[in-house]
């Protein structure tokens, strides 16, 4: 994999990969690292960090294990971020391909819909969607994807517009390939690169929006998320700052890691552009 080799040569990419791999491992191993329900009481309330070896990061105002909360929160954040990214890319690439390949009125109509989604601030859109349909992890994912698919759609459409004039598309028509197959099997895979380059940015934005929704009480109430932890710790900011600082720090590190990964992907793609004619 030449791409992987180029990626590993990028310093930012390596750093990001290390951060995200650590968080992801923690998230995947959550049932073994913190086997107890993170929403259950584990000890005395408001235990400060680094005072009890069994509860290394202390407890919150209800006596719940902070470390367990952080680990399980990583799960929610990454799962929501990745799922929203996949959904946004799927919607965006289908819309972009159909618009670019069909052209004419279909293109006009789809791009005006894209405009309509793009002028609404993403967070407001997510907020409105979740408050209408009720908070659950599924609606949160869809709510975030609804605001994030427009950019990939535009990038894919621009690629499709140039690709559809290429000879290999003409060759596919000459052998009698169905237009739908030409669009989705011949053109789309070649149009995805720029959209994939911003995939990591979509994940980062999704993690932040998810945290913000949870902070406002619109997250899934049955799972721990960093946003909810920050919201609960907020009232005790003066007496127990760790309650909001720790999940806040986790959020910052995660988003930073994702940005670095995105930087690495960008570097790797750019280097390929330089080496191939």
């Amino acid at each position: 994999m030449a791409f992987l080799r180029r990626y590993l040569r990028s310093g930012a990419g390596m750093a990001g990969l290390l951060i995200i791999a650590t968080i992801a491992l923690g998230a995947i191993a959550a049932p073994w690292l913190a086997p107890r329900d993170p929403l259950a009481i584990a000890g005395p309330a408001l235990l400060p960090p680094f005072t009890d070896a069994r509860l290394p990061l202390g407890t919150d105002r209800l006596g719940r294990d902070m470390l367990a909360g952080l680990i399980h929160g990583a799960r929610a954040s990454l799962a929501v971020g990745l799922a929203a990214m996949v959904a946004a890319l799927a919607i965006g690439s289908v819309v972009g391909t159909v618009a670019g390949f069909a052209g004419g009125l279909v293109d006009e109509a789809l791009m005006r819909v894209t405009d309509a989604f793009q002028v609404v601030p993403r967070f407001l859109l997510a907020l409105a969607f979740v408050s209408t349909l009720g908070p659950s992890i599924g609606t949160v994912v869809i709510a975030i994807a609804l605001g994030a698919w427009t950019e990939p759609a535009r990038l894919v459409r621009a690629q499709v517009l140039s690709l559809r004039e290429r000879d290999f598309v003409a060759a596919a028509r000459v052998i009698g390939m169905h237009p739908a197959e030409i669009a989705f099997r011949e053109i789309l895979p070649n149009a995805l690169t720029p959209a994939l380059a911003i995939a990591a940015l979509i994940v980062a934005a999704a993690v932040l929006i998810e945290a913000a929704l949870s902070f406002l009480g619109l997250g899934d109430p049955n799972i721990v998320t960093w946003g909810t932890m920050i919201a609960e710790g907020r009232n005790l900011l003066r007496t127990a700052p760790a309650l909001s600082l720790l999940p806040g720090l986790a959020l910052v590190i995660t988003v930073l890691g994702i940005y670095l990964v995105s930087e690495g992907i960008g570097d790797a793609l750019e280097r390929r552009g330089r080496t191939t004619p």
């Binding site: 290429r166 000879d167 290999f168 003409a170 060759a171 000459v174 052998i175 009698g176 390939m177 169905h178």
Partner: peptide, 24 residues
């Protein structure tokens, strides 16, 4: 009907690189 009839009339393009999907 056109797609079916196309098998009788084929074409070879000038640029042998551009005429193929780069992933093929």
């Amino acid at each position: 009907p056109l797609r079916a009839a196309r098998r009788h009339l084929q074409m070879v393009f000038q640029d042998p690189l551009a005429a193929f999907n780069p992933r093929a």
